[in-house]
Design a protein around this nucleic acid. Structure first.
Lengths: 193, 193
DNA sequence: AAAATTAAACAGAACGGTCTAATTATTTTA
DNA sequence: TAAAATAATTAGACCGTTCTGTTTAATTTT
């Protein structure tokens, strides 16, 4: 009949807590408190804080990948308009969230990407998954003559991706969306054929 | 005749340690050990870890601002070529450093920018200082007809700034310069008149 | 009954920060 | 100018708390 707790619940709490507070600023006790499970149960499910964080990144990354895929599959606009609306939505979400956390995976990359190979590898793997989806949409836009063909679709996907996280990070201290909107306007102007 | 230690030495150690390891992953003891001073002396100079970090950010930010100003003042190329060479140099430095730390201020923004108003404010202040210099070079490039005048110089400066830190962050997990070079190529193509 | 899970007490190390004493530098006084 | 008084700095033991992780026993599920 299943046990009292399950990994997924704890992973979801971990996602939220890590996203808002970072990795080293969060202790296991905080996760336990917010998910309401005792320490013994946590260490029954996870080997360590690091192992837990890896699974948090993986779960969120894969869910987000599915969500992105569905978004673009369902989007009835032209490829470039799909990309525009996708990033407009991301900017909107970030504003709604009061610029409170940004992206878990990007935060992890910056905070621990150079000192923790395991978390770096997992983060990169999830990013690559997202980038492939972006690249396929870019490719469609190129095939339809909307997006510049000066650069290949993966380069353009990485360009969108990095630019977005650059301005997203910037909002953590400016705490307004001005430069995100500017980025959106400029970027889609630049890459449009 | 002066005392044994001085703040500047400790701040420089703090810069290096924070840049490579982040904020919450570093304890005061590590700073003490690496700078060779006892705890009593540290707390004689600084009120708290937070106060120390703020002064580290401020000192580095201001030094870097001077350095940037001098770089662009001394650069004998056209404005756009100065910007190109500046970012090419930054990419080169990051590779030489084996992608080991990135930029202290950007790291601080991402790690603590949403939870620590004091460090967020200081980080933003330093960024604004740098951005003003970039914007002034962009403006010169616009006046000389090399850089697009579709967007004002501050928007373009923020665009360069955010894009660069976006790809810089990306290298923390890819650990190679491919997309930094791609970013450089694409960005300067896009903003060139 | 056996296996898996839950519960919470328990470790040892590390955390940021305090405290008092000793030392060094500076200013005041003789 | 030398001695005395004061101020600033150095030193590190120490404080309570929190950190990740372990252990042992009770409970639940199979």
């Amino acid at each position: 009949m299943g046990y009292k707790y399950n990994k997924e619940e704890i992973l979801d709490v971990g996602y939220d807590v890590f996203r808002r507070n970072g990795y080293h600023n969060v202790g296991i006790n905080q996760i336990l408190k917010e998910s309401g499970i005792p320490k013994g149960s946590f260490y029954n499910f996870f080997d360590s804080k690091e192992d837990f964080a890896q699974q948090v990144i993986k779960r969120y990354g894969e869910n987000n990948q599915c969500w992105m895929q569905k978004y673009f599959d369902d989007c009835e606009l032209s490829p470039i308009e799909c990309l525009k609306s996708f990033y407009a939505m991301m900017i909107h979400y970030n504003e709604e969230d009061n610029y409170a956390g940004g992206c878990l995976v990007n935060n992890m990359c910056v905070e621990v990407g150079r000192n923790n190979d395991m978390l770096a590898k997992e983060s990169n793997q999830q990013f690559v998954g997202w980038l492939q989806i972006l690249a396929s949409v870019v490719k469609k836009g190129q095939d339809q003559g909307q997006i510049t063909t000066q650069y290949n679709s993966l380069w353009l996907a990485e360009y969108l991706h990095a630019g977005f996280y650059g301005v997203l990070s910037r909002t953590k201290v400016t705490r307004n969306r001005e430069y995100m909107d500017a980025w959106h306007t400029m970027t889609f102007n630049f890459i449009t054929q």
